[in-house]
Simulated assay, not measured.
Amino acid sequence: MSIGNSPEDERPFEDVSEEARPSIGRTLQQARIAAGLTVDDVSTATRVRIAIVHAIEADNFAACGGDVYARGHIKTLARAVHLDPIPLLEQYDAGRGGRPAPTPAAPLFEAERIRPERRGPNWTAAMVAAIVVVVGFVGFTVFEGGNDGGTKEQVADGTTPTATDSASPTTKTTKPDEKPDPTDSAIAAAPQDKVTVQVSAVDGRSWIYAKNHNGRILFDGLLKKGQSKTFQDSTKINLVLGDAGAIQLYVNGKKIDDDFQPGAVERLTYTKGDPQVG
């Protein structure tokens, strides 16, 4: 019998340190190659410049312009090559002493305020204002001509109700039981001097990337089934649909009937006026 370490005790320890884990850039590069994509393919799909894609795959994040932008690029590239971005973001934060402090979010979703800005006339307020004016006029007339019995009789007979009756036909034009057709509402809400794009996930979920004419990202994320987003710009909207077959589009108030295939990635550009795909 031998005394000492057994063969099992002489096996080298498994290296589970952080150094043994592939770097962020190496992980993204391997996933891109496994997906059969080139750097140009990823750049086109994500709108991240080729030079920045190369730099990130080489673990050089200085070209991103800061931690916030670097995290955003890592997240976008990971989704493009079918990776979960969360472990990569945690690895990035761990290498820099933790996640950076949050910064105020820019008002990205300007188009979500279209409906409040284009509300119809407030007939109730108009009616109240008309009643106040009539009552004030009648009160002034009564005060000035207090000895005129005819005027008093007119007030007693109900001059104020007459004003209410005159305003009532206006209120009758709105029928509470009637609901506008969604298509009509979309057309009415679309300004003629802007391009308005409504994206709805009707047949499943899809990754959506939206950008305005200045290159500012309006949305970069997953749209779940039943959810919708509306984007607006003065010139054009650029879209990338991760699963175009699950998406229904309304552009400038008109439904887009393109026969998008399930699972297909579509890159679209829409401008003002009649929907034009660029």
Score class of each variant (00 low, 15 high):
D59V: 06
P116Q: 03
R118Y: 00
A188Y: 08
K229W: 08
R115L: 15
S206D: 01
G97N: 02
A246T: 09
Y92L: 10
G263I: 12
N5M: 11
A58N: 10
N147Y: 11
V132Y: 10
N147D: 15
T27P: 02
A190M: 05
E10Y: 03
A31F: 02
Q248T: 12
Q91F: 11
R71W: 01
V132I: 13
A125D: 05
V132C: 12
P275E: 05
D40N: 14
I114T: 12
R11L: 15
D258Q: 07
K172E: 12
A35D: 10
P169R: 07
N60S: 11
A201W: 04
S234G: 11
P107G: 11
K229R: 13
L218T: 11
R32K: 08
L28C: 05
Q154R: 09
F140C: 11
P22C: 07
Q227N: 12
D148W: 11
R267M: 12
P116H: 05
G36P: 05
G120Y: 05
G253Y: 06
D220P: 03
N212Y: 02
V195D: 00
R115W: 05
I208C: 10
L223G: 06
E117R: 14
Y92K: 01
P275D: 13
K75A: 13
H82M: 05
R47W: 02
K172H: 13
S228D: 08
T164Y: 03
Q227A: 15
V53H: 07
R49C: 14
S2R: 09
N5R: 14
R71C: 15
N147S: 15
A63N: 00
G158P: 01
A188M: 06
R21E: 14
A264Q: 15
T160G: 09
I50A: 09
V197Q: 04
I187Y: 15
